[in-house]
Amino acid sequence: MTFEPTISLDKNDDQPDSSPLVNRYAQIYLKHDDEQMLLVLPSQAEISADLPWSETWQELKHLLQTKEQSWQVGTNVCLVAKDRLLDARQLQTIAETLDDVKLSLLTVSTNRRQTAVAAATSGYSVQQQAVAQPLIKAATDSEETSPLADPLYLQSTVRSGVEIRHPGTIVIFGDLNPGGKAIAAGDILVWGRLRGIAHAGAQGNTQCRITALQMEFTQLRIADAVARAPKLRPRRLSPELAFITTEGISLAKTSEFAKRYFFSSPSKAWIDHNQAK
């Protein structure tokens, strides 16, 4: 069985824009933390210049609608607001939105005095932090060492205009439509058609992979390698997997990948057993 190099690589040639790397985690996320859940807002520095509040709220609603409801009714939530300024009305909106999915806002963690005052006045417990304690380390030189967040499991199709960013692995139980984007620090698994843009290993981890039942992508990126869809690519019937080789991004049948390739840390790429000898 031969594997033709199905897509070409233009490594680093034109990084369309630096946004995925700059505000990689400029997305709200929700995670379990012992008994409670943390709702983490991106910090002021992580969001692009004055993102309107309505956008943040839309994003929160979208997150709650699509996220698998893996919590008990009435679970307490700690809002990690970092340096975001929130007034009483905005806090109330967040509380109501959480209430719709049976979560209850209990604590607000912030390092802004005004937000702390608003939270206290509205009757929430307040954790005021003197310095911003970054929950996720910024990707500097420690590219492969920063721990990944829990996988994000999305139970719906990612439609045009939607961008999912997650500091861990993303699993999409549906399609990733053209115009939609998934950016993960870990792997990306699409249990459906991948027709939009997927970026795995966004923190620079070249070991990350992207897999889909049907690969019909617009663009794939792994770490800083980019592959565009060829003009003509016959439809494959079996699931495929994209990964980095020394030649750039390659595709293989998911079922054959494990048998055929191993990851070589020194070359930071997947190597074909047959060619290694």
């Binding site: 839309q58 979208h62 045009s160 205009g161």
Partner: peptide
Amino acid sequence: VRDADRVIGLLEAEG
């Protein structure tokens, strides 16, 4: 169709 897809997403987010 691309715009329709976007709008469907927004509608779904609105419930």
